[in-house]
Design a protein around this nucleic acid. Structure first.
Lengths: 186, 186
DNA sequence: AACTATACGGAGGACGCCTCCGGTTCTACA
DNA sequence: TGTAGAACCGGAGGCGTCCTCCGTATAGTT
């Protein structure tokens, strides 16, 4: 990779992150290019579409979440660990207005670069909680992450988002608990 | 209202419904106008923005759901009635690709014409279930509808939407059940 | 039939996405 | 150090969408 190409790539990435935070993930790509001091053509060469750009931006942040998941793997209560981690994921999604919507709108194919590591990390936490018999055996990590994102999405438009978020998360996570007799062994 | 105005209004409404089903709720407004044999200006005069059009289209269908809710008010199991009704809401939302997303993206203000009657109808069902002590007292109908829409949204993009939808709905509704000792009186 | 309030329609400005290719710049190699 | 050419840049331009504005047409009334 030529030095100028690398430089432009980095600038675009930094500018995109900024734009996504300020204007949401549907920020104008032309604006991003302009602020990065680069032509629109350059942006599209490095990132064929908006999702490529988003994947690049969020890849780093996702890594942080996977680290947290690893740490939580040794926490006392497996279920608490899982729940706390899901809340972290939600907080992250909330930071970028529109991220949750974009992730879903993308169909399953587009944002895999971000999703796959998250699933791996969260899957371990879920499995542990299921093995402990505390969480329904038929829950999948994909479902849980989907639900979490959905709740973020629902809440983020509302003036009292925090309250709504907490209530919905509570409701959902309450449903996660294994009913008596339905454990991982069942 | 002048006769020609009324005629155009009706045509636009019919065409919009068709377009929303075929292309999703982000169908092109110019297309809708064209198919209705009407200028784009006419569309905007009758419906100041996309949400006005959506409200008009869905108002009728919402009425059907409120009727169903009334019927279910006399069903045997209050909780079953509530759950069945929420599933109906979900089925309706699913019919129009993007409806769920639009309802949320609109903030709370825009789609009230559709939401208010739904809340009234569902609220009665929820209250009955809570009174019976079968459903958590801290659940609100607004939350439940939000959650339902969220699940529709999550599922609609996926190839196996039906399966995902069922699992998530199960998970959520399971969380609805009142834990021992936490009833409407608590 | 004439009048007027009401409604029509589409041209046009603004904006966003994305492609394409002539021009520029870096770098490897002599 | 000079240079050839691969790699890269940039933005003009085509397309689609939203929405506004205002000259024109028409329904309904007297």
């Amino acid at each position: 990779m030529r030095a100028d190409a690398q430089r432009n790539y980095d600038r675009l990435l930094a500018e995109a992150r900024q734009a996504f935070i300020v204007h949401g993930t549907d920020a104008s790509l032309e604006d991003i290019a302009r602020h990065a001091g680069v032509g629109i053509g350059t942006l599209y060469r490095h990132f064929p579409d908006r999702y490529a750009l988003m994947n690049a931006v969020f890849e780093q942040e996702v890594e942080l979440l996977t680290v947290r998941a690893d740490e939580l793997l040794t926490a006392d209560s497996p279920t608490d660990a899982l729940v706390r981690w899901l809340r972290m994921v939600a907080v992250h999604s909330t930071m970028y207005r529109g991220l949750a919507a974009a992730i879903m709108a993308a169909g399953d194919a587009k944002m895999t670069a971000c999703k796959a590591p998250l699933r791996a990390a969260g899957g371990a936490l879920l499995e542990r909680a299921q093995r402990a018999g505390e969480v329904r055996a038929d829950a999948t990590i994909a479902d849980l992450l989907k639900l979490t994102n959905a709740i973020v999405l629902v809440a983020e438009k509302d003036p009292e988002r925090q309250a709504i978020f907490d209530r919905l998360m509570d409701l959902t996570l309450h449903g996660l608990r294994a009913p008596a007799g339905v454990t991982a062994q069942a």
